[in-house]
Design a protein around this nucleic acid. Structure first.
Length: 280
DNA sequence: CGGGACGCCTGTGAGC
DNA sequence: TGCTCACAGGCGTCCC
């Protein structure tokens, strides 16, 4: 479900209510990607600090009398976080079969629902200590980091011979664009997804960076509602098909030129593009 | 090291 | 209606 905008929307939805909340109890469901790395009951009594995001990871700092650290969370492919107000029907309801992590706090019940269980919740003594540092260490710059100039972005692409779509998905030159937004940004920038990253000129790299920011920023404004089955806390989903330029539109007319949108497979993932509008 | 395949899981929709 | 198959928003690990 989540690419960067959806993770950021999630963060914005839970950060303020959970700031300063105290954990009354915690519970694990079926195993996620990795073990928690801590006895789940050890979370009891810890106080939640300011929740941050790096790439598609969320960091929940936790402070207690004897323990300090935090939880590094990832929503994987199908994860979502729900925060249910104390005393609400949802908070009182038993966890669903796909609720695999739960924090009962003074500010409500936080539940990670993740059918495919590619997501993760991992204890780390600090965000810059193992194991968090190991996972975050390979991430490239944030898309809206002002330090990521067109020059630097272009320089990053120039080091890679793989297809530009693969480089975007790798997250080493820029984080946050998943399969959908990578396709959409390449379409907006008029760049063929199979073009080698190091063959992209400075002007085209500049356009691609702008397109990535546009696509991710727009999704953020729309509250992450551009994904197929993403729903916010109010259950609003919306506008997916209306937003997509190429993603999921194989065989349909390109909105710019009318040519049939094509689908190819790269890294075992679908890539959608317009063979006319997007040049090598 | 870079590049690409694999595997982790469950759910859903299309086609028969 | 029920089965099978392809495919789904990610990413760490492993092998070349």
């Amino acid at each position: 479900m989540p690419e960067l905008p959806e993770v950021e929307v999630t963060r914005r939805g839970i950060a303020a209510p959970l700031l300063g909340a105290r954990i009354a109890s915690a519970r694990l469901g079926k195993p996620l990607r990795w073990p928690l790395g801590l006895e789940v009951d050890a979370l009891r009594g810890l106080q939640i600090g300011a929740i941050t995001r790096r790439g598609k990871y969320l960091w929940l700092p936790l402070q207690g009398d004897r323990a300090a650290g935090g939880l590094l969370m990832h929503l994987g492919m199908s994860g979502s976080l729900g925060l249910h107000a104390p005393g609400s029907a949802q908070a009182l309801a038993a966890p669903g079969i796909h609720d695999h992590f739960e924090l009962v706090t003074s500010a409500g019940v936080l539940r990670l629902n993740d059918p495919r269980r590619f997501g993760a919740v991992v204890w780390s003594p600090a965000i810059d200590a193992l194991p968090a540092a190991q996972l975050l260490g390979r991430l490239g710059p944030e898309p809206f980091d002002a330090a990521l100039t067109p020059e630097r972005f272009h320089a990053g692409l120039a080091l890679r011979r793989a297809p530009v779509k693969a480089v975007l998905l790798s997250g080493s030159v820029i984080v946050g664009a998943g399969n959908i937004y990578a396709c959409e940004a390449l379409f907006l920038a008029g760049i063929h997804p199979a073009l080698r990253a190091d063959r992209i000129s400075r002007p085209r790299a500049t356009r691609l960076l702008a397109a990535l920011r546009l696509v991710l920023g727009r999704a953020l404004e729309l509250g992450g509602s551009t994904l197929r089955d993403f729903s916010d806390v109010h259950g609003a989903s919306g506008a997916y098909q209306a937003q997509a330029g190429v993603y999921g539109r194989e065989g349909q007319a390109c909105r710019a030129c009318g040519t049939a949108v094509r689908r190819i497979v790269q890294l075992q993932r679908s890539t959608f593009f317009c063979g006319v509008c997007q040049r090598r």
